[in-house]
């Protein structure tokens, strides 16, 4: 009896979950921000899963075997396309052996396609830190880029699932018009602080700064991927005092204590602003996330004029 039950469980485990499931597109995104945009475009015609957790540093995700299984079953894969995932995605893809999501396949979406990446290095030199060869990959902090990414995703969805092309197009139009309206609003809210100086932990908010006319004065990391040193922090403190920079942005996974130390000496406020939807309460979708980001910044600028 017991053996039968064990056998039944084993058989159940061996049968892929296709039975009972709708013919939804199985979409995998490397990061939750891409997943959120994909859900907006796919609606109820897709199942979207993100590989990276919203709360963790997306440069350093473990290439866990469960992610191999996720990628093996995927119809589509959306990656950033700017090598942010270079430390963990290639071995996963190698093990996943899924041609549907191979580079160049319709099921593979490179989000950076069509985006003008900033900080593209002219020379490759790691004495400048761990600089991404293709440019800064944190482009989704500029909502205007989300517009391009969404269009790119909708195009691929329609290619893989032509029957639903009209629905994807309609979802895209809805998402873009929401985004356009929101962008006007966000720009209005941040307009009074044009030119304001901000400090970030990593160079991960440069696209946001460019969009809203803010100035990233310094980063707590001396160079990308290099831990903050006391000497560098002393420099940052001096620069902040000189330029009257009073707002420090950190992502939830970054070392808040370092930021607090600097803030204490510069009378600045530290705001915790994730880049991934779902990292903290009230940021379930990409639009919620930017809403939160803008609100937090406006509040901080108001408090520390």
């Amino acid at each position: 009896m017991r053996a039968h039950r064990i056998l039944a469980v084993l058989i159940a485990a061996l049968i892929p979950t296709a039975v009972g499931a709708q013919k939804k597109l199985n979409v995998v995104a490397t990061t939750p921000d891409l997943a959120s945009i994909a859900s907006m475009i796919g609606g109820d015609r897709v199942d979207v899963k993100a590989l990276a957790k919203a709360t963790e540093d997306p440069h350093f995700v473990d290439a866990k075997p469960s992610l191999i299984v996720t990628l093996n079953r995927a119809d589509m894969l959306i990656d950033g396309g700017a090598e942010m995932e270079i430390g963990w995605l290639p071995p996963l893809l190698q093990s996943a052996r899924n041609t549907k999501i191979a580079t160049g396949a319709p099921g593979r979406i490179s989000a950076a396609q069509g985006i003008k990446l900033l900080e593209v290095p002219a020379t490759f030199d790691r004495s400048r830190g761990d600089v991404h060869a293709l440019g800064n990959p944190h482009f989704l902090t500029d909502p205007a880029n989300a517009r391009i990414v969404a269009a790119n995703i909708a195009g691929h969805f329609a290619q893989v699932d032509p029957g639903s092309a009209a629905a994807y197009q309609a979802n895209l139009a809805r998402f873009q018009s929401t985004l356009d309206a929101k962008l006007t609003d966000w720009q209005r809210q941040l307009a009074p602080y044009k030119g304001a100086k901000i400090v970030t932990y990593h160079r991960d908010f440069i696209y946001l700064a460019a969009r809203f006319g803010l100035d990233v004065l310094e980063t707590l990391e001396p160079k990308p991927g290099i831990a903050p040193s006391p000497a560098h922090l002393a420099q940052v403190i001096a620069a902040m005092k000189g330029a009257n920079a009073r707002v420090i942005l950190v992502q939830p996974f970054q070392n808040r204590r370092t930021a607090e130390t600097v803030a204490r000496q510069t009378d600045a406020s530290v705001i915790e602003v994730p880049q991934q939807p779902g990292a903290i309460a009230g940021t379930a979708t990409y639009v919620d996330l930017i809403d939160h980001l803008v609100a937090e910044m406006v509040a901080a600028f108001k408090a520390k004029p």
Partner: peptide
Amino acid sequence: KSARAMQG
């Protein structure tokens, strides 16, 4: 690995 891992 911490859910809020930085650099892993």
